[in-house]
Design a protein around this nucleic acid. Structure first.
Lengths: 243, 243
DNA sequence: GTTGCCGGATTGTCCGACAATGATAGGTTC
DNA sequence: GAACCTATCATTGTCGGACAATCCGGCAAC
């Protein structure tokens, strides 16, 4: 009965330019490190004004697809750095009002298997990095800031030891969201530091021994301890996170 | 002895403007849905040229922090839509040369506990959505495209049933990366559709029955099946993904 | 109630300009 | 020949201004 039309789609020029360049980066016809022509030249090629090109470049830059390498004014193609991507995810989660509990639950799910995987695949350098982080935790235990940083660093080292980029990138936003509340716990709960330190030691040992079940168990306890920490620090896990 | 100086940081005006606005969105002093002043007005407030403001807006827009609501020319504050964030993550993973195996391993880790959590918390609407996706899979099984879409949709429904945003957002990029290879499997492996369909049915049943262990088991098999599928379809899991 | 029209606001795009700053090449000194 | 200095040039960041298209709101006409 009724005639149906497709929604018409109009994209401004700056989006088209961004899409065109982005497309070629994604499909690898522009390779990492390759330098883009100057803005004026791009404007000429696309047949638009330089201002339009610049708007497109800002978008690609913020996606991490383009970056300016030090010592070069020209933009060059880059793979989005993990930190940037993770920051995007944690910002999004923050604005979506995720609760402490949601982050904690995700850690509960993610971390023990990561520890197990790390115990499976091991590589000497990875163990060293883990030891370094553990040692730094002990050394800087007095300073809450250092303690917090080292705690998440231990997580990072373990994830890195799995040599699975996906796991590392999945974990990173959680660590970012965890840190502020972890700081509160470490500040308010006296026994937190020693318990965390002990967990680190056991985790390191079991990963070194390639004892996956043991690594899993200790990681479970480690994460479970956070939940206790939240209680003791008087943090309501149902509350949404804030930066 | 030596005098130490901080690295001097220079940020172009468009970055400063973007940071200023972004900051206020992140710390919620600008609330979701709130409309920004017009570009001319922003330029006046920041004391820069409109082109500069526009470059900043492009960045915020691409981060999903600003969007234009239909029927309004003014930019309004938005929380980054999941799809956009997920797209950013999967693009990044793609460019970082993640392998099929890495994605698969992450699914192995993530999905069974998600299914278990879904079996714990259940909400009538969630079950309906899951049933709908399962039914759509059966209905459209002939069409590979539909089958692929419904398979990931089932994952999405299960994650949604956990009511944990973090889990949903962690999973989404994996689904995006999974889909192309899943399409190949469904095309090349005759028994794939029935096995996937069976898994969906069992998953739905055990979640409805709130049987977390059973849901875990079926999800494990479901994901393990993918690995078999890759073999049968002749896909080398060590190869990096491509779009 | 729908349609048509007008004024104003806003964006998308363009033109052109210019200072600051690195890169580079070319000449100079040892 | 190597190292150093300098003039030149290319490129970005930023600006001023301009203009068409378009969309919103309101109001009149049908």
């Amino acid at each position: 009965m009724s005639v149906e039309f497709d929604q018409i789609t109009f994209a401004p020029a700056y989006r088209k330019v961004a899409d065109a360049i982005g497309e070629r980066i994604l499909n690898r016809s522009l390779r990492e490190g390759e330098r883009l022509p100057a803005e004026t030249e791009l404007a000429r090629q696309f047949g638009v004004h330089r201002s339009t090109v610049r708007e497109a470049l800002r978008e690609l830059q913020s996606r991490g697809l383009l970056t300016r390498r030090p010592g070069s004014r020209l933009m060059s193609v880059s793979r989005p750095p993990q930190e940037r991507v993770a920051a995007g995810v944690s910002d999004a989660l923050l604005l979506h009002d995720v609760t402490v509990h949601e982050v904690w639950q995700a850690l509960t799910i993610l971390e023990p298997p990561i520890a197990a995987a790390a115990a499976g695949v091991r590589h000497l350098g990875d163990l060293e990095a883990l030891d370094a982080a553990t040692a730094a935790f002990h050394g800087g235990m007095a300073d809450a800031e250092v303690a917090v940083h080292c705690t998440s660093e231990v997580f990072r080292c373990i994830a890195r030891a799995t040599h699975n980029t996906v796991l590392g990138l999945a974990q990173e936003p959680l660590l970012r969201l965890l840190e502020p509340s972890l700081r509160v716990i470490i500040d308010k709960v006296p026994q937190a530091r020693t318990r965390i330190g002990a967990a680190h030691a056991r985790l390191g040992a079991s990963i070194r021994a390639q004892d996956a079940p043991e690594a899993t168990r200790w990681m479970q306890r480690h994460i479970a301890d956070f939940s206790r920490g939240y209680q003791l620090a008087g943090i309501d896990m149902g509350l949404r996170l804030s930066l």
